[in-house]
């Protein structure tokens, strides 16, 4: 079978992930050294190495930390009269009750919805690649691009805590301290970003190339 639409990998070509230059694959020999891009020097590979395994490893670590990130307080406010611990969710509820619901929605979306959707979507992409699913390739590729784009916005709450901590230390009047939830939350954001970066979207198109034409 000669594919109607050959990929670089099928013709023994390697596209540099970094600068896009196409190179010929070095002949397979006893010592297949890691090749470097002749133009920019980046490590060359047809697909990201150990893409699935690395993405799952980051994914599992992110899921484990997802719970402390949401259950532990991300900040603690103490004033003259009381002290209050806020988790991510209680911060959203506070904003909502306060009447600033656009802000509540924004924080809810960036801090709660995006990380959760990211974890679910990554698992979906990984599982469908592993079972060799050939349907919905376009949708899955688009999902991957969306993941890469929205992931960073979850850092929002980390920056909010940073600014609040720095500003609100008015000695006797009020004081805000960052809580352990912030560490876990920051780690979740970084780990989900690493998981998305480890995943290679070209794997979506590698499965069962024979079925591809009837679908395309």
């Amino acid at each position: 079978m000669s594919p109607a639409q050959p990929t670089a990998a099928q013709l023994g070509l390697l596209a540099c992930d970094c600068c896009g230059l196409l190179s010929r694959r070095a002949p397979a020999g006893p010592q297949r050294l890691a090749a470097a891009c002749p133009r920019c020097g980046a490590h060359l590979h047809s697909r990201k190495p150990h893409s699935i395994g690395r993405a799952w490893a980051y994914w599992i670590a992110a899921v484990v930390l997802y719970f402390p990130a949401n259950l532990l307080p991300i900040m603690q406010t103490s004033s003259l009269f009381d002290s209050q611990r806020d988790t991510i969710m209680s911060g959203v509820i506070f904003l909502w009750n306060d009447g600033s619901w656009p802000l509540a929605l924004l924080v809810f979306f960036a801090s709660v919805v995006v990380p959760l959707l990211k974890l679910i979507a990554l698992a979906y992409l990984l599982v469908t690649v592993q079972i060799g699913m050939s349907r919905r390739r376009h949708q899955r590729t688009r999902l991957y691009r969306m993941l890469e784009f929205v992931g960073r916005w979850s850092m929002l709450d980390i920056y909010v805590v940073t600014i609040l901590v720095a500003l609100v230390h008015l000695q006797s009047l009020a004081e805000i301290e960052a809580g352990p939830g912030a560490i876990a939350f920051g780690a979740v954001v970084v780990l989900t970003m690493l998981a998305a970066m480890s995943f290679d979207p070209r794997l979506i198109w590698d499965a069962n190339p024979a079925q591809e034409r009837q679908h395309a």
Binding site: Q5, A8, L11, L13, A15, G20, L22, T141, Y144, D206
Partner: peptide, 12 residues
């Protein structure tokens, strides 16, 4: 008209 490979699906 150089050949290029797509970075998302590897199509030449």
């Amino acid at each position: 008209h150089p050949l290029i490979a797509c970075h998302d699906c590897d199509l030449l």
